[in-house]
Design a binder for these strands. Structure first.
Length: 285
DNA sequence: CACTTGACCTGTCCGC
DNA sequence: TGCGGACAGGTCAAGT
């Protein structure tokens, strides 16, 4: 469930904690997380410095001082938590109660200079680490649509992409990473509510005016969620093991049978595009 | 090509 | 208290 706001929050935390540090050791307790032989990963990671921490969609990118980039996908339950022996040098706050590390879901541990530890935890083990040669990076990122919080994300180009779709719903379109990068189930529902658009509307049939509203809604919702440091209602924690607060501000997601914050009628839950989908029948047309 | 479905996993919750 | 089953949803491969 880490979507763009959660991954962006982690990116910023890792950037604060890791920039310029050298990886001293790499301990792997579940090899399946790494897309490739453990031995190769150790060879390439140990000795490398972290030059930059970037994000594309929901993919985290650690640019290393060699010719490689470590791409990390958290999928649904992946966590990255960084701690130092004292707790405050790196993050400001030690982990307390929210996510003790390491634990039985810790699959990879990096030790960096300054005794800083990076733990990768993942209950469901859908997440992965992928070391990719920098020259191969464009190939990996080719399938991502525009970053919704960058100027590359325009109404015109969103409209063009939606028009090309035939039968599928606008909800499915928002979840499609080639349409726009970084939206998942939570922020798709939130954006559609803000735009006043029913999630099961055919994507190709939205009016220009509605596309405009949706384009704006996506940006508004994602910005608000980044400011709240993401949504924690299950396993998500930021790079320092802390929770985000967007859950407390959510408009429709997980609010089925509760009153719509706009009209007071009850929020509905149904299944669209194979996902639990929350919306207001009255406010969303 | 457009689109849908199933697989990958395991913790949590609900009904019996 | 325990147990079976539904459910959570990001992505990719396979199927329609």
């Amino acid at each position: 469930m880490p979507e763009l706001p959660e991954v962006e929050t982690i990116r910023a935390d890792l950037s604060d904690c890791l920039l310029g540090r050298k990886i001293i050791s790499c301990q792997v307790t579940r090899a399946g997380i790494l897309r490739g032989p453990v031995k190769i990963y150790r060879q390439l990671l140990v000795g490398a410095k972290v030059k930059a921490v970037e994000r594309r969609g929901k993919l985290l990118l650690l640019r290393l001082s060699n010719d490689y980039t470590l791409a990390i996908h958290l999928k649904m339950t992946g966590q990255i938590v960084v701690v130092s022996p004292t707790g405050d040098r790196v993050g400001g706050h030690p982990i307390k109660g929210v996510s003790q590390v390491p634990n039985r879901f810790t699959h990879v541990t990096l030790t960096l200079t300054g005794k800083v530890k990076l733990y990768f935890n993942d209950v469901r083990r859908f997440g992965y680490w992928l070391l990719v040669l920098n020259s191969d990076l464009p190939k990996l990122l080719r399938n991502y649509g525009p970053e919704p919080l960058s100027p590359n994300f325009t109404v015109q180009q969103l409209a063009a992409k939606l028009k090309r779709r035939r039968g599928s719903s606008i909800k499915a379109a928002l979840l499609d990473q080639t349409v726009v990068a970084g939206i998942g189930n939570i922020y798709a529902d939130e954006s559609l509510f803000v735009a006043g658009v029913q999630p099961d509307r055919r994507a190709g049939e939205l009016l220009e005016e509605e596309i405009k509203k949706l384009h704006q809604a996506v940006k508004t919702v994602l910005r608000r969620a980044v400011r709240a440091r993401g949504t924690s209602f299950n396993s998500y924690v930021d790079g320092r093991g802390r929770r985000g607060t967007y859950w407390e501000r959510r408009l429709v997601y997980g609010r089925q049978n509760e009153p719509c914050l706009r009209c007071g009628r009850l929020i509905s839950k149904t299944r669209i595009a194979g996902r639990g989908t929350h919306y207001c029948q009255h406010c969303q047309k």
